[in-house]
Design a protein around this nucleic acid. Sequence first.
DNA 1: TATATTTGTCACCAAATAGTGACACAGATA
DNA 2: TATCTGTGTCACTATTTGGTGACAAATATA
Lengths: 209, 209
Amino acid sequence: MELKETEKRLLEAVSKVVEEEGFTKIGINRIARQAQCDKVLIYRYFGGLDGLLVAWAKRYDFYSFAYSEFSNQVIQAKSSNLREIIKKVLLKQLEYLKENQLMQELYIWELSGNSSFRVIQIEREKSGHKLQQELEKRLNGQCVDCKFYITVIIAAINYIVLFTRQYNMFNGIDFSQSETWNKLEKIISDYVDMFFEVKSNVNIKSNKQ
Amino acid sequence: MELKETEKRLLEAVSKVVEEEGFTKIGINRIARQAQCDKVLIYRYFGGLDGLLVAWAKRYDFYSFAYSEFSNQVIQAKSSNLREIIKKVLLKQLEYLKENQLMQELYIWELSGNSSFRVIQIEREKSGHKLQQELEKRLNGQCVDCKFYITVIIAAINYIVLFTRQYNMFNGIDFSQSETWNKLEKIISDYVDMFFEVKSNVNIKSNKQ
DNA sequence: TATATTTGTCACCAAATAGTGACACAGATA
DNA sequence: TATCTGTGTCACTATTTGGTGACAAATATA
């Protein structure tokens, strides 16, 4: 189904307001002003602010987009070197989030517990779960706790990006320097190597590689 | 200098509003209502909302409190088993943040980029840096990248706690179950073991232990 | 042609927001 | 006694917020 001109304008207005003022400032009036249309149309077309936000998140669909990109990498790649795939996926997540300001706002919004996003969260979780399952299939029980190890890294990536968006220093480290980010990538890569080696040594003695 | 009765009431009102409604709802009127005093007193005593918030954060001083507790553990402990100290510090951070709802709100507030908290952030960073330096002194160049490895774990802890405050599932893992948290503790502990072993093997061949 | 329905404009509401000026009353100081 | 200063109350502004009902024009349908 095609979107009306005004609906598109409203959805774009959401992006603009979020980009310019952050998610805290979001409101019916503010968005209507940005879209240069009457706020009553938000109620008519989307049933209110919550409906508009859900429609917005679904349309731009950051979550699925991000995860599907990762999934593709996982699925396409030959299962030969799973370790490298995981590294790629994690570093891609870092790069993607770091560059995508709108997605950062969305993540913080999500953390702040806005009720509108419960619905979105379920969708997001599905995408995430699909990726996890795909990974697990490949791992084939090799690395039982992989899921956890990876999740910890993803959480770290998210937090560091969100935090350093506002502040240069985190935990005594200066993230305003690009070398720090290179270092971080190396650390992530190292961590993957570590749990891969430790775990695979324990669980399957010797591997093909 | 002693605090006036009304000033105390105002500071406590901030805590209550944050606890009950989260940081997004904070405002002059809302706080004055909670403290049952006139909002004009906020302007008189603190120069406005920002001043009040800064005073609040300084008084309750979560950051320094948390970090000083950690520092004490690091300083008191004999340097014999540094690895265990780091584990303790990290697990303590997890436990502390998980239990302290007010601190969670503060962290999210911080992430959201409220301008009032730039000042606080500098104080916080000092405490964090002190701990890092203490650690580095003990490490004595043994583990060059320790700082980074630890920072990644801390970031992960923060994100997971903040996220699961709102949602049960993160990345396909169900954090509503207490076993999951036990597992997480184990994973963190494992990670510390990993980078300790890998790094110390590389950098100093054989260790006392 | 006549009748609905969609699409949008406008005026209004009650409530909440941040912020200010005036004033009343206390206790301390001259 | 008279004055000054800290403390608090009250009333008022202007703006913004979310939300609703009435109405005009355009479009589609009969």
